[in-house]
């Protein structure tokens, strides 16, 4: 399931229960998330925020943040999927390279990739990407999504996205406008049935590419 446009970050914040729903219910595998202990719930969710947020320490300590017991292998695997391996290996101290407070010594794209690696490292059931690909260039974005697609075959992935290209392959796209759902379906279905979605797609990809 994937989401698009207005009010989306809010929805994403509801899944790990940063906020509770005011009305209605949010269920995972049929269980109301209010009935799951917060800790257990969150251990199942790989959350990647909009802005890559790192802690002071090393690259390794950041990737392993949610899963301190992760093995060397797991850590490297997470970095590889997140397309972070190359730049990490280019650093002198590789995984032991220091990260300063707020991660000011790595670039925005690198921060985001490390945040993604951190989420992969806990091996969650559900991935939540809150517009997490925006700081990446298109090439890295594509590679990352390909790698992630293999890894996440049996997992639920919720992506908040601006770029249509990010979500073309989604099983289900939800189009939100001003907090309300205005369309639901695959890319092809929405192109036919959902006017706001069509507009967005056209503006981003251009007429010729869509045809």
């Amino acid at each position: 399931m994937e989401v698009q446009v207005h009010g989306k970050s809010t929805i994403v914040n509801l899944i790990p229960r940063f906020y509770d729903v005011t009305g209605g219910e949010l269920r995972i595998d049929g269980v109301n998330i209010k009935e799951v202990p917060q800790k257990e719930l969150r251990a199942k969710i790989g959350f990647v925020p909009q802005k890559g947020m790192l802690f002071s320490g090393t690259i390794a300590s950041n990737i392993k943040y949610g899963n301190p017991e992760a093995s060397e292998e797991q850590m490297k695997f997470a970095a590889r999927i997140a397309q972070a391996e190359e730049f990490i290996n280019n650093k002198e101290e590789t995984y032991d390279s220091p990260i300063s407070q707020g991660g000011t010594n790595v670039s925005g794209g690198q921060k985001q990739r490390l945040s993604i690696a951190r989420a992969i490292a806990i091996d969650p059931e559900i991935f939540v990407f809150d517009d997490s690909f925006s700081a990446l260039d298109l090439k890295t974005d594509v590679n990352l999504r390909n790698a992630l697609a293999k890894e996440t075959k049996n997992k639920t992935v919720i992506i908040v996205a601006q770029r249509i290209s990010t979500i073309l392959n989604a099983d289900q796209i939800i189009v939100l406008e001003e907090g309300k759902m205005v369309g639901k379906g695959t890319h092809e279905e929405l192109m036919k049935s959902c006017e706001p979605y069509r507009e967005i797609a056209l503006s981003q990809l251009g007429e010729e590419e869509l045809e």
Binding site: P16, F18, K39, R42, A43, I45, F47, P49, M53, L54, F55, S56, Y65, G66, P68, Q101, G102, S115, R118, I122
Partner: peptide, 22 residues
């Protein structure tokens, strides 16, 4: 001070990854 600043700044991450105890 640094720790408070950092933990507070990365509040969502701390919570999302069950890092509170640590």
């Amino acid at each position: 001070n640094g720790q408070v600043e950092e933990i507070y700044g990365g509040h969502t991450i701390v919570k999302a990854f069950n890092g509170e105890e640590q």
